[in-house]
Write a protein that binds this DNA or RNA. Sequence first.
DNA 1: TAATTTCCTG
DNA 2: CAGGAAATTA
Length: 673
Amino acid sequence: MDSPSDLFGRQSSLISPFDPHITPSGGGHGAPYPGANPSSQPHYPLIHHLLQPGGAPMRSRGQLHLDRYNREEEGMEGEKEEGMGGRLVGAGGKRLSGAALVADWSYDMMRVKRLRLESLVFGDGEIGLEEEEEEEEEKGRRNAERGNREKGREGRRRRREREELKEQLEEARGRLKTLQEKVWKAFGERSAQEEEKRWSGGEQEEDEIDHLSLPFIPSSPHFQGIAKQDRKAEDHEKRSEEQRNVNGGGGGFLEGVLKRAAVWMGCGVVRGEWERFGGEQKFAQALKQELGSAVARVIDRVLRLYTQNDPLPPSIHPSPGEGRNAGGAPPPHPHQEQSEALPLITRRPDNRRNNLLPPNNRTKNTLLPPHPFPPLCQPHPALLPPSSRHKDSSPFLPPSSCPLPIPLLHYTMQQLFTRSLSHLPPLHKGGIMNSDVYMEGNPFPNLLTSASSSSHPSFPPLAVMEGLDRLDGGLQHHHERDGGMRGGRDGGMDSGIYLGLGSISFFWRSGEGLSPCHLKKAKLMFFYARYPSSNTLKTYFPDVKFNRCVTSQLIKWFSNFREFFYIQMERFARQAARDGAPCLGRDSRETPLCLGRDTELYRILNMHYNKSNDYQVPDRFVEIAELALREFYTAIQTGRDSDPCWKKYIYKIICKLDSPVPDSFRLPGCPMG
DNA sequence: TAATTTCCTG
DNA sequence: CAGGAAATTA
């Protein structure tokens, strides 16, 4: 069973750029650069789901895929001559639809993969042939000397295999290139025209980013440009979508995905960066973003279906950062009390890092082994808390290479879900659906139950579950844990749903408690306060209904944070003392044990407390960490660590250094959105 | 005594 | 990160 974390982990490893010439780098135990190994296979994470001929999202286009697939089975040779994009133009010289083009793209991606596989299989087969030949030859000259000649032959054979593989790779690359050109021809021109047209039309809604559709837009100019275009396309689609029947269902959804995916592809090519920045990767990102938004739309549609007598207000499409918007005050929400009383209890394994990108201009630490920095993804500036909206909020962020962080996407979807479901009519226990069957296996526990089924439409689980994968073990486990944790509470609050859509999984549950979002917030709070009192915590988690259990859990979190913090400090202090290199940073000869932001220790801390790296680590925290490090170091050097309670002295110092937590943390939800 | 913190374990 | 035990604090 794939746990959600597995899925995320795998995804991250799947976003490797399809660049056979990628320079090997990093590759520590965490394998932060999945594509670093030149021999590793390229993967296509979400794309792959889409691209499978039978893959769920593409199912409606399965015909097209199957057609191509069969043709491929019939003869590869003709295919080769025809060229990759040969059929991008239809019979009448007419351009194929976006869907067809995307299908072509997917098909070609499959071809590339197949080529690789076949090359491997073929290579094996050839080895077998060669071996047979060798046997025959050997019969004729049993007594002849073999040693050196065989060695030479072996070498030649391997060279030949290598060359063939290389050729096939080149061929695949060429096909990709051809396809990219075709894509450009098909969409780049159109996109450029549309762009021109729209701009001449005087559209100025540049800042009105639809965060629902574009959960996170890296703030680099490159991505902003793409986002802008995508927004425009989306606006257009929205307009036409409104004219269509809302209940159109999956067809519209798929069209939307394909259409915007095409626009994204066009965007990349318009800027001539398709190849320069790794078109496949960008395409993967585009698709992922599209999937996110499309899924959100589908969810909204489904919900609209079941809440027709409780129509969703326009605010159903808020930005993920709602509540921490520019005004700072959470916008009034019709169901504010409800959504606050029913925060997310999404329990997700936390090992969801996606170290995908090598840092830019990463400086080597002389003392410590080179490690990549954590994932460097900036959410849209609007999503950043005021304190992190600096222009250099991500000092080592490569401008144009920022994959969509899966966890962030996940969070976005969670929040969308919470908002959407908060508009559902209240459903209570004891209704027609109240059975252990649903409680056990159905991912829609009590939410599906309704005491007042006559007044509210019951929430048909199967309908919603259609096309949605049920989440497996991991979340179920947490569900049970949560249930245990909430023993003695009002049963009515213990409701929630699990949802999974492909590899994007959701778990939503209403009820008071701490969610991963709260955990994230707590971690960020740790940057300011290492020893927050329970009262402090209560003021900074207004959306949490505190009771003894929740309070102790939150306190326990901070205890764990401290533990981790001090363990790292001690570890690095000991290492520095042992290695006699009291400089953790570069240029720190004059300032021993300087904790620069380019050090491994900083990276570890940042990774732990700011995993998605979307928050600017306060300088004060770095200073305090540095201080703690020095304290540990001197204690170790002076032998004070032989005292059993030597750490307490340090703890006392550190606990006095808490600084006030920014007001942005007083708002409910994650400070990042 | 309750709340909090640390230490240890899984 | 959670749970539990022990130590510490108010």
